[in-house]
Design a protein around this nucleic acid. Structure first.
Lengths: 221, 221, 221, 221
DNA sequence: AATGAATGAGCATTCATTCAT
DNA sequence: CATGAATGAATGCTCATTCAT
């Protein structure tokens, strides 16, 4: 005789679901109120789960943050790779950069929650108690820079591998700063301007700076 | 023989001084731990003043934040105007932009505390209880953009007033994003790269984008 | 070998009991020191429970007061109805009033705590933050008056229903004032005089006033 | 040549005036919020005087309460004696009691503030720190009882001095309870019924009880 | 796996009071 | 006589966390 799980069963086997609900709520609330500004009680109210459930699934508040960041990072870069699956195989660097960055802007819009929390953690040390989360932050920044370098390198592939590398190294940090700055502006000034416009302008700038490097050799940093 | 007032006198009658000490400590600590992450007790320990003294000088924690932001904003823009007192009267837009932005970078280094707190407030809503502080944040962003426009306009003055205006309007937001993004990078990756390099690269990008606008008319946004 | 639960076990799982302990302590202390004069810390010391336990069981200090008043009112009127279960079915109004009021006096002695807190809340607005408690106060006064009317009406039942009603309406408020005034005197002058004497005298007065109404029709208010 | 006091002089010589302002504000606020519920800060805001001024004029919060009570008691009994200056020299005890109590009701209406604070102090021990004030409370109750006895004795003077004394002793406490109870009712139920009606009914009751004593000798307590 | 009760440290804020000017 | 600044204890309340069931 089969005992089908009641649709609103109070028993166990909701483990995985609860865990994910908690992670989602934590990402949502912490990205808005910051880590210190988010209390376990608030998350308990938000999810309807008792506070003790949080400690069943996570070691501590800091551990919860770490898990949130890890999952967010994973999703973010997965989305990035996914959206860039079929890059253009020719075209000017400018065109290619536009293609890359436009898509990158789409990912920004979807990963707003994660990026907001990431930047808050970057700026303030309010989560000093969560070293794992801080480690994730550092990795994400690093990987982000690497990804930006990859996009630039690909876009300048036509200029030769060595040159493309040189350009990518020179501009990756600046590209990422443009990305971060655009995100800050979007958070601050709201929808005054669509993301795509920010990304196009960034592509324009990177293209111009890159061409200068290609043309001049080592004259620009 | 003169009896100088003991430098560490425990008297009252030091109203203004206490107030400023509190403001300084609050700016320092809040910029590091965020608003929610900064407790009045922590500030009390930091300053040596009892908690009640804080409520003598400020209405509440939110009121203290507002005062911190106001004073920080005032100092920031004062430093900006001061450092740009004798702008170059000729030279290429590129040279002029470099001059402006280099100095702007110096102000960034001195105003790190203020800018960090500002960005944290921009990103998270953790200070929703301090509407005056949020208002200051908005004003600062606005004024910052206007200042960036002013620098670009001045740099392109040689191309005619109307063109300079057009360039400034088209690039001010991007310039500010570059500034913000560089600040984020500095907070995150630390001193891997001096501010001046960031600012030079930003000047290069703005110059290139600006020249394109001057050359092409309305082809770039 | 049986391990009986230690009678003073420090376990949790005693939700109801803790709640009741808190209510009792609050009733006791608040009735003596007033609402504003009673601190949560004092109640914490009194009960041995940590302050946070209070907020687990009640929303706030005001909510605690409301619960105290509600439970007190419930117990008070239950005791009243209980003590008057078998009223005399004949006798003069004077005799019957004495029977009723004597028993009412007993309830006063047992409900001293509740009545003291009730009167403090009636007199001062010190619990303005607890509107539910104030509502209870109003209900209790109303119900008290109705109960006094019921006692008078029953006592004068021999004079016909209409007359009894008339007498009850005319004297209920005065009867209640006598009850309140006697309680005040007992609080103030202490045991100079037993409650029964106060109640007898009140019965005498109500009987005399009532007879006058019965005799004269509408000549007394 | 007369030096008129400048209407808004900032200098001294406002001592007496400040003191009285403080006393008035304290009586007003404490009678509404209770002693514990009234903070020195609230009184400071209410009067516009700095908190330190309070300690210039009074020793402490408890001392202030004592002064408030003392002044209130003084005024209350002065008003009582004043309003009863020309008592009726003949008439039935009933008529005379009505005359006395009606006027007593007027004093109640004017002394509401004082009586409210008095009763709160009687009921709760929230001012245990102010023994002088508590002493005043006791004295006032005592003097009140004596005054009630005086009114009854005068009203029954026609029955002979000894009998009048007997009646006064037997009824003074009850009379005062009726007075207190009426005051409680007025605070609680508000203006549902004018004071004069309460006082008339009390006079009726006292007259009836008194006549019974006069008639029966020692049969009533 | 899930939960209601408990816990004590810590929170922002207000308290009565003091004191130098 | 008047006052603005200071002070530390206490206020009501929330925090992250634990634990028996």
């Amino acid at each position: 005789m089969i005992e089908p799980p009641a649709p609103e069963t109070r028993t166990n086997r909701r483990g995985r679901r609860s865990r994910q609900e908690i992670l989602d709520a934590a990402a949502r609330v912490m990205s808005v109120r910051g880590y210190a500004g988010t209390s376990m009680s608030a998350l308990s109210k938000e999810t309807g789960l008792p506070k003790s459930a949080f400690y069943h699934h996570f070691e501590s508040k800091a551990g919860l943050l770490s898990a949130v960041m890890e999952q967010g990072a994973h999703a973010f870069f997965a989305a990035m790779r996914e959206t860039h699956r079929n890059p253009p195989e020719d075209g000017t660097p400018h065109e290619r950069l536009r293609w890359y960055l436009r898509r990158t802007g789409d990912v920004m819009e979807n990963g707003e929650e994660f990026l907001r929390l990431l930047l808050v953690l970057v700026m303030s040390r309010e989560a000093a108690e969560a070293p794992e989360a801080l480690q994730t932050v550092i990795s994400v920044r690093e990987e982000g820079r690497a990804y930006m370098a990859h996009m630039i390198r690909s876009s300048f592939a036509g200029a030769g591998e060595e040159t493309a590398d040189q350009v990518a190294n020179a501009l990756a940090a600046f590209g990422m700063a443009g990305y971060d700055g655009a995100f800050v502006a979007l958070q601050s000034e709201g929808g005054g301007r669509p993301v795509s416009e920010w990304m196009d302008q960034l592509a324009d700038a990177l293209a111009a700076l890159g061409e200068a490097i290609v043309a001049g050799g080592a004259d620009a940093c």
